[in-house]
Design a protein around this nucleic acid. Structure first.
Lengths: 325, 325
DNA sequence: CTGACCTGTGCTCAAATGAGCATGTAGTAT
DNA sequence: ATACTACATGCTCATTTGAGCACAGGTCAG
């Protein structure tokens, strides 16, 4: 990897250079101090140190605990002007490993960002479920469910359970909604929104300061919401350009909101309310979600991101190709 | 080894810290510059960098090509106020491996220190023989044999051959002496010193600026000179406290010159001439030579040293015990 | 409520540092 | 010899940097 290894410095110089380097880097002495100590002048010390770096005698490494690729993270953050990006190097992971890795990192990020003065909003998704199960050291703050539960999903893997888990772990008040996410029509949805518990959660939406959400992909399909719909519904929505979903808000390939009529019959925080949240962290990865995640980022519904390195690289590459805002 | 690994910094801070660290250490930007770039002030950058170092996110290593232990080398150098010390970490090497490792390092040190304005003096010893065989990139300078040849030693392993080898490799003029090192009496030695070739070499002694020599141990015995003597001679000399020899100069345990009468009947540079040489590099290692090497160092006949790490540690420890000059 | 006590921030001022220049010393070609 | 290049060394001066202080906000016990 390094273009030139310990390079051609001879022993006597090496010993001196190593001594100088040790005093400077490891013992934090000033160059002038080292110069006095060795009876040479400070410029000489500076030049020895330069040589030591160039020759590879001194190696400075920035290590990567948790397999986070910092440089890539920062690159992606800048590419889309996001607040926080964490790109996890997962290697050739299975989908389960990928989810676990993202969940662990998301846990760390969320518990870092959330203070007890925050109100945490929570979406739905398998990765978020894993996250909830491993969540610890989270500040004691209210936890608000942002969407209704999806039918046809394992009872222990839905947004209600998710909110319960998290609030149990951080000791904060929970605002769950025991209600399906998708309803037959807007009128039914409107009616159910008036149920006390549901209304209570909805009243909290404007107070939410941090949210963690997943991203659903429609094309190719990788979404619990998509899976919960009938074939007929899917086809109709796909025809209208739906590419991604975030908390029941449907988006086209460029991040524009579409199919408001569908969203109206969902129990969920809406697009405007979601955008109003100070920090929205998307947790998503894997090859199937590229177009969807790009769409969600462009839509402005999220400003932070936990994803895998491959996804991050693809997103950066896409930005280089389409540098439009 | 590090007391605390990547420590408890959270992802968002880690990404920022890693970004700052990369810009500072890897891209050599100034802290102020980084601060402007990231929209924070320079003190913040400094504190982030401090954290990054403390947390182990940034690791600075001083690597050790050729297995040289720099810190130990410098420690030993200071302990005895020497000019150059190179301590080679040889592990559990056999004697042959040890010699080879020391010879390689000695080659590097000698070819680093010797310029074409120097005159190189060469002693005798098995390690030096190996060194001569691998000597390369040595400046083209005169090579002077400092001692006569030892009888009873393999014909290809004596000081004559050594000088021939080196001068053949660096292209410089050679001043060898085809003559035994030890003679029956001082008168014979004096007579032989008048032989043209021998006298020529002796005339060069005061011009020698750099010399490389081995160290012989008498107790325990590990010396080609010792081996070349009769049992009777050895016993007599040992009784007079001989502990070490360097170029036929015999020394007691504290580095005092002894047995001048024996030295008088040797063909060799003498103690005074040897001490007058600007740089004398001793190449010696292995557990049997500890007392001898200490003696030679204390005697002031050498000012530089190529040895193994175990020896170096022992010498440092001895110095700590007997800090007298 | 109040004052002690943290913690994170940004400041002043003096010390540390780097860029670039001037000098000295070769070695080399003319 | 002379001029040129190459290179190491030590300088001046402007910039960068760190130590230590001051201030703001928050927490806690009395």
């Amino acid at each position: 990897m390094p273009p030139e290894e310990p390079a051609r410095l001879r022993p006597a110089q090496l010993v001196r250079a190593a001594t100088v380097a040790r005093l400077y880097f490891l013992e934090s002495k000033s160059k002038s101090e080292i110069a006095d100590e060795l009876g040479i002048n400070r410029f000489k010390v500076a030049r020895i140190l330069e040589q030591a770096r160039e020759s590879g005698l001194v190696r400075i490494e920035i290590s990567a605990p948790d397999n986070i690729d910092y440089e890539l993270s920062e690159q992606l953050r800048r590419a889309y002007d996001l607040r926080h990006v964490v790109a996890v190097e997962t290697g050739e992971a299975t989908e389960v490993h990928l989810r676990t890795a993202l969940a662990r990192t998301a846990t760390a990020l969320v518990s870092e960002l959330v203070t007890e003065n925050d109100v945490l909003g929570v979406g739905y998704g398998r990765t978020l479920t894993i996250m909830a199960e491993t969540m610890d050291a989270l500040a004691c703050c209210p936890v608000v469910q942002l969407t209704g539960a999806l039918l046809g999903v394992n009872a222990e893997e839905n947004s209600v359970e998710l909110v319960r888990q998290i609030s149990a772990r951080n000791g904060g008040p929970a605002f769950p909604m025991y209600i399906p996410q998708v309803l037959p029509d807007a009128a039914t949805a409107a009616m159910l929104r008036r149920q006390p518990e549901v209304a209570e959660a909805h009243r909290r939406f404007p107070t939410v300061t941090k949210a963690v959400v997943a991203v659903g992909s429609w094309n190719p399909p990788s979404s619990q919401l998509y899976d919960a719909l009938t074939s007929k519904e899917r086809t109709a929505l796909l025809r209208r350009g739906v590419t991604a979903e975030v908390c029941a808000t449907l988006l086209d390939a460029d991040g524009n909101t579409v199919a408001q009529d569908f969203t109206d019959r969902c129990i969920s925080i809406n697009s405007g309310q979601l955008k109003a949240i100070e920090d929205v962290i998307a947790v998503a990865g894997g090859p199937t979600k590229l177009a969807a995640l790009r769409s969600v980022i462009l839509s402005g519904h999220v400003n932070s991101l936990v994803t895998d390195a491959t996804m991050a690289r693809s997103l950066v590459a896409l930005r280089a190709t389409h540098p439009s805002s």
